[in-house]
């Protein structure tokens, strides 16, 4: 599904601030796999996710989704394949636009934006149904400006938007880090549900070891721009926090 092949990225090359963020990283994800990525600050986990999303071009290596080489595509061209939820709840949605308009934008992810009307009556019905599954009462606030919703609500909406047009790959970039613990738990539970419901191949970054262990089917740990630990299946199920902590100290 996702193949990251020998990818390297160095920031501020040739300056005093040079930072080798990814060093010859390779990662192959099977279809339907839910990978959680853990690591300290500067370990390279966000860099890995941004490399896949296309925030900037990589220095070396190749990235393939379903056999298609996306290495040379800017972010907006990768959008048909990739759904993304950001760490900052404020940037995953357009605050000055109505809730239903946001969903309509996401429903057209990766499609050409034509001169047809931006939202249809039929779609609105579908959005209402999808919003109802969030159990946040948002189906009654379809014309509310998204900027008026709370961070947790907005993050839930962003998740819904990412899945509205089923992506080949879902990227979750520490998407609960800015939320309070209770809301974070809810959003994580909803993430699990959406991943299952649409059987999405998912890459989730987190700072929280417990979350990384409890969610997903595979866990990788990064350090110094490299993958240092990769565990799945039975081993992942039996993994304990203590094992990871001892690993962190290598």
């Amino acid at each position: 599904m996702l193949e990251v092949m020998h990818v390297s990225k160095t920031f501020n090359k040739g300056t005093i601030n040079e930072k080798r963020a990814l060093i010859d990283v390779s990662l192959t994800m099977e279809s339907g796999e839910f990978v959680t990525v853990i690591g300290g600050n500067g370990a390279g986990k966000s860099t890995l996710l941004n490399a896949v999303a296309g925030s900037w071009p990589v220095d070396e290596g190749a990235i393939l989704v379903d056999g298609v080489n996306i290495t040379g595509m800017p972010e907006y061209k990768r959008a048909p394949m990739i759904g993304r939820v950001f760490q900052d709840p404020m940037i995953g949605t357009a605050p000055n636009m109505e809730l239903q308009e946001n969903l309509a934008l996401a429903y057209r992810r990766g499609q050409k934006r034509t001169l047809r009307w931006g939202i249809t009556a039929k779609e609105k019905e579908m959005y209402r149904e999808r919003l109802a599954t969030l159990n946040l009462g948002l189906e009654e606030r379809m014309t509310t400006q998204v900027g008026l919703l709370s961070g947790g609500q907005r993050q839930a909406v962003t998740l819904l938007m990412a899945a509205l047009q089923r992506p080949k790959l879902l990227l979750l970039d520490e998407h609960t880090a800015a939320l309070d613990p209770k809301t974070a738990e809810k959003v994580l539970a909803f993430s699990d549900r959406i991943v299952k419901e649409y059987s999405l191949t998912t890459l989730m970054i987190t700072h929280n070891m417990t979350d990384a262990i409890e969610h997903g089917t595979r866990l990788i740990m990064m350090d110094g721009g490299e993958i240092v630990f990769d565990i799945k299946g039975e081993d992942k199920i039996h993994l304990r926090k203590e094992d990871l902590i001892s690993r962190y100290k290598i």
């Binding site: 999303a53 972010e75 907006y76 061209k77 959008a79 048909p80 990739i82 759904g83 993304r84 950001f86 404020m90 940037i91 995953g92 949605t93 357009a94 605050p95 000055n96 636009m97 308009e101 309509a104 934008l105 996401a106 057209r108 992810r109 990766g110 499609q111 934006r113 034509t114 001169l115 047809r116 009307w117 931006g118 939202i119 962003t158 938007m161």
Partner: peptide
């Protein structure tokens, strides 16, 4: 009319959240 179309909405989205727009495939 124009700012209600898909293209016009994409322009409004670009002004409202450029990062979201790119992630949704809009050439900001």
């Amino acid at each position: 009319w124009y700012f209600g179309t898909e293209q016009g909405s994409a322009i409004r989205a670009t002004g409202s959240s450029p990062q979201m727009s790119r992630a949704l495939g809009i050439n900001t």
